[in-house]
Each structure stands twice: as structure tokens, then as C-alpha cells.
């Protein structure tokens, strides 16, 4: 294509349809096409996954035999696993949220600039550690370390339902799995929150300071309200990672098939969906494969619901 440079600068008789615009029009349609295509790919991928999970898993939904663990129906299999996923993620989120917000506040409000930069990149590196490494560490280091405290907790606070029951001697409980998960979630949520906190408008900070706020009151009045939706989406990002996390849970957790239990210290623990799929897939065949794929659909649906809820909650409060 010829770029008629003279047309654009010198020609006094340039008309609306002159050739100088043709180049930019090429890029206009081109960039639009690329954007539409990119959007389309995302939708297609999502649709493709859904179709795959639905079609391949279809036989399992009505099957009464041949399922993993000799389950009587897919629901009997999926229910406890869905519970395990949600329960482990929920515990992990309860541990993660305050720590992440604390880390983010420290980095954005309290730490000297240089400390914040170094520590900020440490947090980012933590996010990049592969989950199998966390799994190994959880299994070899954390679980044995926690067995003692678990025994103490169950002895002293056994009256509290979550801590009741005989505590695990190996420490490979759902609480340990949740702690490992929360260590994996914290960097994600902390960096999302820090990003938002540092962008708190100076005008809002000054409003708080000029009213006679201490640093903590500035955080309460300006930083946290401004970062509210980021905190929620950070939670949801972290929750998404926890729900789908497979390797670390599969390695750390000592699970009992089909169990639904809220006790977090005992040696019998519910399994999570993702870990179950990974543990059983290598030896599965026929109907079992369908069942595992159907479980994948269940997990997909759970994350979808979590995300949809998060979007509703995170949406800034309507003004006016």
C-alpha cells in the first residue's frame, strides 16, 4: 500500500475521501477484527470446555454402577467432594483474607519505600512457586509440625465442634491442606489489594488527614473503602485458585472416601473434587472416566457460581 504522505500534509485540495485516510482505516478495521477475534476465542474456549464436560460426562449422571468407589449414583460421589472443595477453600479464605489485607496495608501504608519494593517482589515470587512444591513442603514439613499443636487444640478446645474428635497423628488434615492453600492464595490476594490501596486518591487521604486522622484512621476512612471491591475480587481470585488446586491438596490431605465432616483436626477428612479427579484418573476406564469428567463439570459450576456472586458483590455501590 502506498502512503500518500503529500496528501496528508501539503495538498490544499484534500477531500474527505482522500487516500491519506485509507491507511488508518486499514488499521481501524484490522484492530477491530483482532479484538473481536480475541473475544471470540475466549467465548469459544469456555463453550468448548462446557460442551466437553457435559457430553463426555453425560453417561455418568444416570449411571447406577461402575462409578468410582462403587458409589450408588454420581450425586453420592459428587456431593461429599463438592463439600470438601468448598469447605477446604472456605477455611483457607478465612485464613487468607485478613493476612493478605494486612500484608497489603503494610506494603502500601507502613513499610518504607525500599522495604515495600523488596517485600513486594518476594510476595510475587511466592505466587509463582509451583503448587507441587507447596504440596511437598506441606506433606514433609508442615503436617508433622502441626500434629503437636493439633493434639493440644483438640485436648483444650475439643468442646468447639470444629476441633472435636481424635486429632490426627500425622497432621495431614483438612486444616493443614487449608493452611497450605492459604499460603498459596495470600500472594495473589495481597498483590491485588496492594495495587488498589496504593491507588487510593490523594484527595481522599487528605480528607481523612485534615480531619485529624491517625494513620490507622486514614486507612479506615479512605484506603479500605476505596479498596473494597479490590479486596472482594482478590478474595474471589484466591478462592478460584483454592477450589481448583489439585496437587497440593492431593499430596497433603489424608482423605476418607465419601466423608462429609466439619471436624478439621481428625485423621478422616473429606476429599476435594480436584484432588479426587487427579488421584483417580490414571486408573479410571469406561464409566469411571465419565464420572470424573462429570465431577469436573460440578467443580466448573461451583467456580462459576463463586465468580458470579463475587461480581455482584464487588460491583461498586450504585451512586445516586
Amino acid at each position: 500500500m502506498t502512503i500518500a504522505f503529500s496528501d496528508m500534509t501539503a495538498s490544499p485540495t484534500r477531500t474527505l475521501g482522500s487516500s491519506g485516510r485509507r491507511v488508518s482505516r486499514f488499521f481501524e478495521t484490522g484492530s477491530r477484527g483482532v479484538a473481536v477475534a480475541a473475544g471470540g476465542v475466549v467465548i469459544l474456549a469456555l463453550g468448548g470446555v462446557t460442551v466437553f464436560l457435559t457430553v463426555q460426562g453425560w453417561p455418568a449422571w444416570t449411571a447406577a454402577s461402575g462409578l468410582p468407589q462403587n458409589a450408588s449414583s454420581l450425586w453420592a460421589l459428587a456431593g461429599p467432594l463438592a463439600f470438601g472443595s468448598v469447605w477446604a477453600s472456605a477455611i483457607a479464605l478465612v485464613l487468607t483474607a485478613p493476612i493478605s489485607v494486612g500484608v497489603a496495608l503494610f506494603l502500601s501504608e507502613y513499610a518504607p519505600r525500599r522495604v515495600a519494593r523488596v517485600l513486594g517482589s518476594v510476595v510475587d515470587v511466592l505466587a509463582a512457586v509451583p503448587s507441587v512444591v507447596f504440596g511437598l513442603w506441606g506433606l514433609m514439613v508442615l503436617a508433622p509440625m502441626l500434629a503437636g499443636p493439633y493434639a493440644w487444640l483438640s485436648a483444650k478446645m475439643g468442646w468447639f465442634p470444629l476441633f472435636s474428635g481424635q486429632s490426627s497423628a500425622t497432621g495431614r488434615t483438612i486444616l493443614t491442606a487449608a493452611i497450605v492453600l492459604s499460603i498459596m492464595m495470600t500472594p495473589i490476594m495481597a498483590s491485588v489489594c496492594r495495587e488498589a490501596f496504593t491507588q487510593t486518591p490523594q484527595a481522599l487521604r487528605e480528607a481523612a488527614i485534615a480531619l485529624g486522622s491517625t494513620p490507622w484512621e486514614v486507612i479506615r476512612l479512605a484506603v479500605l473503602p476505596y479498596g473494597r471491591s479490590a479486596m472482594i475480587s482478590g478474595c474471589m481470585l484466591a478462592l478460584g485458585r483454592a477450589l481448583g488446586e489439585t496437587m497440593a491438596v492431593a499430596m497433603v490431605l489424608s482423605a476418607t472416601p465419601g466423608l462429609v465432616s466439619l471436624q478439621v483436626l481428625t485423621s478422616s477428612n473429606p476429599n476435594t473434587t480436584a484432588a479426587f479427579i487427579a488421584q483417580n484418573f490414571p486408573e479410571a476406564h469406561g464409566m469411571q472416566v465419565s464420572a470424573l469428567i462429570a465431577l469436573g463439570l460440578v467443580l466448573f459450576a461451583i467456580t462459576f457460581v463463586v465468580n458470579a456472586v463475587a461480581r455482584r458483590v464487588a460491583r461498586p455501590r450504585k451512586e445516586a
Binding site: P201, A203, L204, E206, A207, A208, I209, A210, L211, G212, S213, T214, L221, A222, P225, R228, P316, R317, E319
Partner: peptide, 21 residues
């Protein structure tokens, strides 16, 4: 300074009410 500011109010160039409060 917190004590000073509680006795000396300030209004800024751009209105800055706490937007969600």
C-alpha cells in the same frame, strides 16, 4: 499534628467527601 488538625479544619480544591459514606 493530629491534634492540630482537629482544631484547624480544611477544605480542598476538589470536593473530597468520603464517596461511599
Amino acid at each position: 499534628p493530629v491534634a492540630v488538625r482537629s482544631r484547624v479544619g480544611m477544605v480542598f480544591q476538589r470536593p473530597n467527601p468520603f464517596p461511599t459514606m
